[in-house]
Design a binder for these strands. Sequence first.
DNA 1: TGATACAGTACCATTTTAGTCCTATTAGAC
DNA 2: GTCTAATAGGACTAAAATGGTACTGTATCA
Lengths: 157, 157
Amino acid sequence: MLRISKMTDYATVILAHLAGDEPVRRTAVALAELTGIGLATTSKVLKELQRAGLVASTRGAHGGYALARPAAAISAADIIDAVEGPVGLTECATHPGQCDLESSCRVGRSWQRVNVAIHRALADVKLTQLTGRDGAAMPVPDLTILLGARPGVRVRA
Amino acid sequence: MLRISKMTDYATVILAHLAGDEPVRRTAVALAELTGIGLATTSKVLKELQRAGLVASTRGAHGGYALARPAAAISAADIIDAVEGPVGLTECATHPGQCDLESSCRVGRSWQRVNVAIHRALADVKLTQLTGRDGAAMPVPDLTILLGARPGVRVRA
DNA sequence: TGATACAGTACCATTTTAGTCCTATTAGAC
DNA sequence: GTCTAATAGGACTAAAATGGTACTGTATCA
């Protein structure tokens, strides 16, 4: 079921190698070697992460990539959004009004709420946790799915 | 990000039309007309749902499909699993040991936990809720993501 | 000014997805 | 019995997404 793309997985691995205890700057070549991912692919992923503002790049000699903000401030949702773009769980989530069935459907809205809930949960999962360098006790993200809540009502702050 | 396939969406719509107040049996043709989904596609989806045990089929004259169990006992996770198969969030979730990066990775496990957590959350979302015929107050699924919990520890019963 | 490294984008191969069609097989009605 | 209504199970195709590569340009530093 529900899967993230290989690219997102790569992105996580790459980001993990940039998430040292203090900020590190590494070149695409170095990261490719560290991770075992092909250089071209590594490069592509890094560019996407840069565009999304998750990493900061420096050009020229002694250039490279570094996290744009602390690992604790980068979430799983950030990574997914950066690499896969803002694709919704269903068609109508991203392009409302495009679906022929929309009138007779009634189901789409529900999936959208599920979508939002999952997204919110993923926003609570930080890079530090994904890399496992966060110690054993984690701030457990408490996701409360919105189904049934009235539209517009926020469950979490 | 994370999306369900169109087929899963169709499946939900179709199941919604089978989830009346009392058990209904409908033919593929009828469901195709009700939902506006092509007959061939409707048929295909129904067959998958049958194989997964979500609907029960009767052949021959006056045959058709009906829910195999109450709508309240069918979850979003059931539907996704039925239509999309047991695909994991990452490669290594479904086929451990296949990934070259697995040793240097350390990230895979985390995604798997996230995966499990999401799956569990979706298991708490019932067809009745997806169709919206469940009234306003919903048994709010409380998903607690497992990141950081020691392996093997179950957070929910 | 040359070497290093990122930026952008176009491109291709492969896989997945969506959708169709055809041939059984089963069950009821006459 | 046999005709008809229905599902079962595939095989198959077209289109789109994905994963991966290559090429050309631009910025930075020594």
